[in-house]
């Protein structure tokens, strides 16, 4: 493609104004002033060569925006490139560790370890994968939506009630630590086996400053049988009926 000669540049116009205002804007080929003609040629842009045609600006814009977006998305959700962080919402390495980074040690054999420590490791993994999305890695939940687990009576008091709650879920308004939460918690009886459920129950009873006792898989198995007749999620009244009302200390 050949390009036509470019219109006179502004500098040439300026020069021309100094020379002769009447000649402003006319085609240089009509001018008989040799200097002017030379000026216009010298200021003319070089013909674009094959292969050096500029890419359209719009395309550069699209590419730039795409790359920018990619960078932003990557930066926000990169999970610190840690193989153990499964939740993309982890904002920093520390937060990532809290939500799941620490579970990396679970890969190592836990041969002669204390069963509670083993359960805690498993429980943390189960918690991160299943519970943290609502109750958060910090156990604080979300105001008005998900009750906190930190220093929660449902967690720390009756063990049977806690297991029943995990097995069948809960819905409807519930008061936890003085605040009302009206949500729905799914049932985990099919998703978690006895060992996993005992582990996560142990974990939430001993994390974040909670000092409850561990829960064993046998307790979970017994609770499955005991509460087998419950087909829907519990409401608050039913939960409080198990082992009596919450004792506020």
């Amino acid at each position: 493609m050949s390009s036509e000669p470019n219109p006179p540049s502004d500098a040439a116009n300026e020069f021309q104004e100094q020379e002769n205002p009447a000649l402003r804007g006319i085609d240089y080929s009509e001018s008989t002033n040799v200097n002017q003609i030379h000026e216009s040629i010298l200021r003319e842009k070089v013909d674009p060569q094959e292969g050096e045609e500029p890419i359209s600006l719009v395309l550069i814009g699209i590419i730039g925006v795409t790359l920018l977006f990619g960078g932003i998305y990557l930066g926000r959700y990169w999970g610190a490139f840690d193989g153990m962080i499964y939740d993309e919402r982890a904002r920093s390495v520390v937060a990532g560790a809290a939500t799941g980074g620490g579970a990396g040690a679970a890969g190592a054999p836990a041969a002669a370890e204390d069963p509670v420590a083993v359960a805690l490791k498993l429980g943390k993994r189960v918690y991160t994968a299943n519970c943290a999305s609502c109750h958060q890695g910090s156990g604080q939940g979300a105001a008005g939506q998900y009750p906190p687990l930190v220093a929660s009576d449902y967690v720390l008091q009756s063990e049977r009630r806690l297991i029943a709650l995990l097995l069948h879920g809960a819905e409807g308004p519930m008061t936890v630590k003085g605040n009302v939460y009206n949500g729905a918690m799914p049932a985990w009886e099919k998703q978690l086996n006895d060992k996993q459920m005992a582990a996560v129950a142990t974990y939430i009873r001993q994390e974040w400053g909670n000092n409850g006792g561990p829960i064993t898989p046998e307790q979970v198995a017994a609770a499955r049988v005991e509460f087998a007749s419950q087909t829907k999620a519990y409401n608050e009244a039913q939960l409080l009926a198990i082992d009596g009302p919450i004792v506020v200390k």
Binding site: T66, L67, Y73, F81, G83, I85, Y86, E88
Partner: peptide, 20 residues
């Protein structure tokens, strides 16, 4: 899925890059 976040994120970023 139960996969590291960076893997999923980089696949999403790459999927967007494919626009180019």
């Amino acid at each position: 899925g139960p996969l590291p976040a960076w893997l999923i994120t980089s696949s999403i970023v790459a999927s967007v890059m494919m626009v180019i």
